[in-house]
Design a protein around this nucleic acid. Structure first.
Length: 691
DNA sequence: TTAGGGTTAG
């Protein structure tokens, strides 16, 4: 590459030899050597040797260097232009993120003698994809067919991609079936289906090329690995990975990163970590993928620990990396840490990215600070579907059904597109508000008007809705008559309602059904034993205990944790491990004494019928969430809300006690339990005492 | 001299 070493030299040499000049311009375009290219340009002008072919090469060079205005200047100065001049400039606009300018050029061509060819349509269709204009895309489609250019593979794939981004998978699939599929269009189609969660369809397309693994290129491996990740199909993923190794494409950083991600999504953190360690090179996506793998599998601290390592490795974070670590902060409820990362993002210019803003909304909502989530949401300049969905579900999970529906109506007024996730939030808001009829109305609206097929999650909301309203038999018959893959979550929703509504007979029957299908469902054992205890059937309680012992099922011990001044303090029921245990126990005794006059009576009907009342009370008094709250009151400023997390569902006694403590101690207490948020304030809980 | 599919988030 003499050209790169000595720009002046190459210019002199190139201008005297037209063939060499062309070769030099091509090489300079590829290397994005703007200044050398300008030197060649100057020489060609001075030598009066700037004809059509060299002019086109210059347009391409300036376009490759991202200087579309210079490319345009050359284009305008040409006395004669051909289809290549248009193609080169149009591609420049496309890659510079100016698809509308590219389409303007297409219109300009209608007045010019040059007729669009397959190159022009491939580029124009890509412009339509980027600009999101289905109408122009369809017009191009019509012209492609009329000109008989539809059989060019490049054009076919550009068409398919245009429909994928501007319309949907159905139209794209029609394009695919009309043409003979090549590897490119199959890759695009698989990715399109995977994005929509239509894994079965994606698998069918993969099936078209499954026999020809030797024809696959690295992008096919990416699509296939993405499909395995979506399906959480480790077996297939491992096979594909093996093929990638055999074909020697695993050294490609995209494929390597995809292997890390696939293992993470399949729940194999160890394998993800090994794949990460084996990467020959690590870029920001590699680091993001491994952090995501940890965070998605609940290993939030491990994910956060990788951040400084990434920085040490000299890799700069991007919007994805911020979104991942913010999600980990939400998982741990370490909001101060998240805010520090948000400030970091501000400095690096990523704070305004929608990915980061949405992650912040989720972090605050998961961390219990729903109004900080709302503040972030309200301050956004551009809200996308995820922003709306996050805010709606955030409010719902916090028991603020009215706020959730208000956001949904606002979303509808702004005509933001709704998704299946939107309606999970909306239906659970109706559940919280007891709006049975509205719930059914939204379900029908979603299915009939929006064309979104309800999933088991939507139906579970309906079960919750009927259950909360006390219509337990209706809920059961809804489950029996509605075709859905009912899971343990759905059945437990009904079971939980049986406990709350004291329909012990139905509860026992439902529990037995669940245990018949899934004999290891710990949650069901716990709920069933509560039902027996509530109905005074101590034989039943000990029966369950025996059954659990026999089956080797252990109830996870209750534990709670709280962040105070960037430190996490963990409490297990009744333990005295904390260095300030004495103070905490004294504080808690005081608090419990203070709420007695407000009507607090320890709920001794727990599951321990074989212990003395005094011991029972001792047990109840020092449940982990009470200890954590007492510690919070002891150490946090009086106006600061106290945020506690618990691994299990909060128990009845703690719920009552914390409700009254919020009144007696004039403190706001937010507890995130295994299912939802409880915001205790002024002697009330946001869950409406139904959980 | 001009053109296609790509990894990480919710």
């Amino acid at each position: 590459m003499r050209a790169l070493r000595s720009p002046g030299g190459v210019a002199a040499w190139a201008s005297s030899d037209p063939g060499a000049a062309l070769a030099a311009l091509k090489a300079l375009a590829e290397a994005q050597e703007l200044s050398s290219g300008k030197a060649v340009h100057g020489r060609l002008l001075r030598a009066r040797a700037l004809g059509l072919v060299h002019g086109n090469a210059l347009i391409h060079l300036y376009a490759s260097c991202g200087r579309t205005y210079l490319a345009r200047r050359v284009f305008d100065a040409l006395s004669l232009r051909n289809v290549v001049s248009y193609g080169a400039l149009m591609a420049g606009y496309l890659h510079a993120g100016l698809p509308a300018a590219g389409l303007d050029l297409l219109r300009h061509m209608d007045l010019a003698p040059a007729r669009p060819n397959e190159f022009i349509y491939a580029t124009a269709l890509a412009c339509c994809s980027d600009a999101g204009t289905l109408r122009t895309g369809e017009q191009c489609h019509g012209r492609v067919l009329k000109a008989g250019l539809g059989t060019f593979p490049y054009v076919g794939n550009s068409l398919l991609c245009m429909y994928l981004t501007c319309s949907g998978v159905e139209d794209a699939a029609r394009v695919l079936s009309a043409a003979s599929p090549d590897v490119y269009s199959c890759n695009s189609m698989i990715n399109g289906y995977v994005d929509q969660g239509r894994f079965g369809d994606a698998m069918a397309v993969l099936g078209l090329i499954l026999a020809e693994v030797d024809q696959w290129d690295h992008v096919t491996f990416l699509a296939a690995l993405g499909l395995c990740a979506g399906l959480k199909d480790l077996r297939l993923g491992t096979q594909i990975h093996g093929q990638a190794l055999r074909r020697g494409v695993e050294g490609n950083i995209f494929v390597g990163n995809s292997v890390v991600d696939m293992h993470g999504k399949c729940g194999e953190v160890g394998a993800a970590w090994r794949a990460f360690c084996e990467l020959p090179d690590r870029n920001v996506v590699s680091w993001s993928s491994i952090m995501a793998a940890f965070a998605q599998n609940g290993l939030f601290e491990e994910a956060l620990r990788l951040w400084p390592e990434m920085e040490e490795d000299g890799v700069r974070p991007n919007d994805f990396s911020y979104a991942i670590v913010l999600a980990a902060c939400g998982g741990l409820s370490v909001l101060r840490h998240g805010e520090a990362l948000s400030a970091h993002a501000e400095k690096t210019g990523f704070r305004g990215h929608s990915l980061v803003e949405n992650a912040l909304i989720n972090m605050y909502a998961r961390g219990g600070s729903i109004w900080d989530a709302h503040k972030t949401f309200a301050g956004m300049r551009r809200r996308d579907t995820v922003s709306w969905n996050s805010m709606i579900s955030g409010f719902s999970q916090h028991g603020l059904g009215g706020e959730a529906l208000r956001v949904f109506h606002w979303m509808s007024m702004e005509r933001a597109p709704t998704t299946a996730v939107t309606f999970v939030g909306v239906l659970s808001a109706c559940d919280r508000l007891g709006l049975v009829d509205d719930g059914f109305r939204y379900l029908n609206q979603m299915a009939d008007q929006m064309g979104i097929s309800p999933t088991v999650e939507h139906y579970t909301c309906i079960v919750g809705l009927l259950s909360r309203a006390g219509r337990l038999e209706d809920a059961e018959s809804f489950m029996k008559t509605t075709e859905a893959e009912w899971d343990a979550v759905a059945w437990r929703t009904l079971l939980c309602a049986c406990l709350i509504h004291k329909n012990h007979g139905l509860g026992k029957r439902i529990a037995k059904q669940i245990l018949h299908r899934n004999p290891n469902d710990v949650g069901t054992y716990v709920l069933l034993s509560n039902i027996y205890a509530r109905s005074g059937s101590w034989d039943g309680v000990s029966e369950i205990r025996k059954l659990m012992r026999a089956r080797g099922i252990k109830k996870e011990p209750g534990s709670s944790w709280i962040q105070v001044r960037n430190q996490t303090h963990v409490f297990v029921s009744g333990d005295r491990e904390h260095p300030r245990a004495d103070e905490i126990y004294t504080k808690l005794r005081d608090l419990l004494a203070a709420i007695r006059p407000l009507g607090y009576v320890p709920d001794l009907d727990g599951v321990f019928h074989d212990v003395e009342d005094e011991q029972k009370e001792e047990c109840l008094s020092f449940h982990s969430e009470k200890l954590a709250v007492a510690f919070g009151i002891l150490t946090m400023p009086p106006t600061a809300p106290i945020h506690v997390m618990k691994n299990l569902r909060i128990c009845d006694d703690c719920h009552t006690a914390l409700t009254l403590i919020s009144l007696a101690a004039a403190r706001t207490v937010v507890v995130r339990d295994a299912n939802r948020f409880h915001c205790f304030e002024d002697g009330r809980c946001s869950c409406g005492s139904y959980w």
